[in-house]
Design a protein around this nucleic acid. Structure first.
Lengths: 339, 339
DNA sequence: TTGTATGCGTTATCAG
DNA sequence: CTGATAACGCATACAA
């Protein structure tokens, strides 16, 4: 493995100059810079993380702490985050908030002590703790909030627009000619449920249609069984909807089952759309039209923000509030209503 | 942060002695060893990974390369592996085999060059490549095979026993009194499909029941739609099974839907069991009895093997062939047959 | 604009 | 059994 010394020799300069070039510092003649770059390429040189880290005390690790390792959300986020880290030449160190492991702050403190990370990603529900934010801020640790319920003033955050996504999903249904669209809502405790519901209502009202009432909007609480009951109630009513928008794919699957039980075909008798794009959504039949949370892009944004922050020596860079565009995945569970 | 020097001072010894104690080396008087341990505890000392790495050239990173980032299997494995790494004080670096990125060996080579990992986990389908194994072996890189189709002679591997799991799952059905049990098999291209099917047949035959024929075993190829057709065929036949064992949870979900379409209730009219324990299995209703692949334990075993291997200075340690016990998750999709 | 010299916290050599 | 000291590869204070 070539070292900085080899590069310096090859380029006919001192190691300090090579160092300057590597870190994009000023005070290097342009021709010299090029010569160094050439030498680095020819030797296929890449700096040693270990040495760098030893010298600067800054780790390339990025910490992410979560509280529910079994959730599908977290699992997919991990996946995306790992990929993003890998792409950025950094690596992810994960930690778990234990139910009975003391206060969040204590656990965060212990994690930092143990791993020595100085970049952290805070995911729900921890990202909504102002205590944690305060602590990290005071300690000078760079951090990003992932999908916080409320954006904080001085802190960078990355999220998607649940409300807009729900609105577009509903619009998609309206565009196909549906006039009566049911909504199986999520757990009201989650802010996302609220936003998705609002987006759904907005789309409908903005088309001049009446605001949907209790016959069309039922709480499913992200629970399969409740959603099943909700869908059955809707579909067996007097004036059943021609389409159902479930606030999660799990609940959309429940709508599939309710339709089957009632002898209704999806999508011919009733269209169904979901939210999440869980892995089964594409393999189930008919394949489910749904909203894909842009995990990959959100992860990449988190890493980018953290990188910028730590490369910037001068104090704290301005916080960024990034909203990543989602994607509507149109598949075959949705068609124009009969007649 | 205390360093080795602080510990040495506190214990009244030289740093070399502290180093010896840390690395469990010989030639230290027992009382001295204790004194050092005490000092380390009192100072809450932990060695610097960066320095260690710089000095030894050995990275704490563990590499894992995969080819299908969107698969649920991979996503769950990642998750488990990250956790295991974190627990072991190491970290995971992931890489992706690109479809058109050159041969596997070239890509593996590039990954190693770039990340400098010297511990690698090979997952399906790469774990079955003897070329890759040979390459890593010659290069002196420690590696473990994850769920290989065939265990290799000189290489450690970690897997679960698909056949045994399928056999137990089927036995569970038999124990409840089922005599006619259908099987929706997976893609014959996967060795796991074959093993699961064999386990199913074994259980049935060993009870003195006739070996199931083509009316009871249908290929679903891990495809929802095919599985749906298969389940409908079985359940609408002359002598329908009272229980269906699907080789994946996705396909079990298809069986649910087929039952619903035919006006059959799960589990009262037909029991359904699956394989994988995907996240929806517990939330769907009735919740699905299934086989849980022991991702966490398998991941932990991989890391353990790698750790042992790299701490062992003397040549190459003996390869281990670990089979991790699986778990049958009994939920509510399965009951005794009617009458 | 460029170079020299020192130290980050370990491990390892070799001499007691 | 123990210890002084030299690396490992990089960044930087300081000198030129």
């Amino acid at each position: 493995m070539p070292t900085i010394i080899d590069v310096a020799k090859k380029a006919g300069v001192s190691i300090k100059t090579v160092s300057r070039v590597m870190n994009n510092q000023t005070n290097v003649k342009e021709t010299t810079r090029e010569r160094v770059h050439l030498a680095m390429e020819q030797l296929d040189y890449s700096p040693s993380d270990a040495a760098r880290q030893l010298r600067t005390g800054k780790s390339l690790a990025i910490g992410m702490l979560y509280s529910d390792p079994s959730s599908g959300y977290q699992s997919r986020l991990n996946h995306a985050m790992m990929q993003a880290c890998s792409d950025a030449g950094r690596y992810l160190v994960v930690g778990l908030f234990e139910e009975h492991g003391g206060s969040w702050q204590q656990q965060l403190e212990a994690f930092i002590e143990r791993t020595k990370v100085n970049n952290i990603i805070l995911v729900p529900p921890m990202c909504d703790s102002s205590i944690l934010q305060e602590y990290l801020f005071n300690r000078g640790i760079q951090f990003v909030l992932m999908s916080p319920s409320h954006t904080a003033p001085k802190v960078s955050s990355v999220s998607m627009d649940d409300q807009m996504a729900a609105r577009e999903m509903t619009q998609h249904l309206l565009d196909q000619g549906h006039k009566r669209i049911g909504h199986i809502a999520g757990d009201p405790a989650h802010i996302a449920s609220f936003l998705r519901r609002r987006g759904y209502e907005e789309a409908i009202v903005s088309m001049g249609l009446p605001r949907p009432g209790n016959d069309l909007v039922i709480d499913g609480q992200f629970d399969f069984r409740r959603a099943l009951a909700a869908a059955e109630t809707m579909l067996s009513g007097d004036n059943p909807p021609t389409a159902i928008f479930a606030a999660s794919d799990d609940m959309a699957a429940a709508a599939y089952m309710a339709a089957g039980r009632l002898g209704l075909a999806v999508p011919d008798d009733v269209s169904v759309v979901g939210f999440d794009n869980i892995s089964i959504a594409g393999t189930i039949w008919p394949s489910l039209t749904t909203v894909a949370q842009p995990f990959d892009d959100m992860a990449a944004e988190c890493i980018r923000i953290l990188r910028n922050a730590s490369s910037d020596d001068s104090s704290r860079p301005a916080p960024e509030l990034v909203v990543v565009p989602h994607k509507i995945i149109v598949r075959s569970s949705c068609t124009a209503p009969a007649n």
